[in-house]
Write a protein that binds this DNA or RNA. Structure first.
Lengths: 124, 124
DNA sequence: ATATGTGCAAACTCTTTGCATGGAG
DNA sequence: CTCCATGCAAAGAGTTTGCACATAT
């Protein structure tokens, strides 16, 4: 059985997520974790993220037109707000209504994604 | 002024879009256009798509977690349905309601994107 | 002591660009 | 007969993998 070791690099990466509490890009993870473990490399970010996803501590967040982000697993169903000014992505709860009526005839919908765009509170 | 030439390659690429009437990936464009101009290369697809976007004959469609697609410009506001079985993307008209209430306090929304997932009529 | 994790560099994939040739005007 | 467009191959950007060394257990 695979034993997962508790290393300084992984502690740093987990801390970055705990502090941010929003979906982070690989670049944001690297920058944040390097403030704790300076010579951490991008390969370690990708490998640690991969194992944290397998452990179900993180989940991947697909954003339109940008690279994949990751956030802590176990949150209630939610969607994402993208700030055009700072590029950060935030969670928000709730869904709009009336999506069933939008599905083309003969199609079957089993899921949806909502992305809102604009300006976040700290950039306003 | 830049003169745009009417070549067999660009005619083929435009025909692929006219026949499909849905957002196409670079790979789908290449495969479709090669049925008309067999030794067409991917570089030409990217360059032609770029100029068709500049001419405003195409617009880019950003999909979560996959590469950029393109569709004909000038359509009314709409969103996209992604078939999990065949991977094709289709347009649908209309929007859900109640999105304003979802915006976090202090944030300002200026746009939205909706993606529906499921099975299309031809895969059902 | 042993096997997993890390850093570096090379490999890969997708997209873009340089250059010589081809073809539209 | 001019230039723009094309095909090929090389160059970039982002992500993944191989390998030798470091380190958690």
């Amino acid at each position: 059985m695979t034993m997962i070791r508790d290393t300084a690099q992984r502690r740093a990466i987990r801390k970055v997520f705990l502090d941010a509490d929003r979906p982070l890009s690989p670049e944001e993870i690297l920058t944040g974790a390097q403030r704790i473990v300076p010579n951490l490399g991008m390969a370690t970010v990708y490998r640690s993220v991969k194992s944290l996803v397998e452990e179900e501590w993180l989940v991947a967040v697909d954003m339109p037109g940008e690279s994949q982000r990751y956030e802590q697993a176990g949150k209630a169903h939610h969607h994402h707000f993208n700030c055009r000014t700072c590029g950060r992505v935030y969670d928000f709860d709730g869904c709009p209504t009336g999506m069933d009526e939008l599905v083309p005839p003969g199609f079957v919908m089993d899921d949806h994604e909502i992305y809102l765009y604009g300006t976040c509170a700290s950039c306003k």
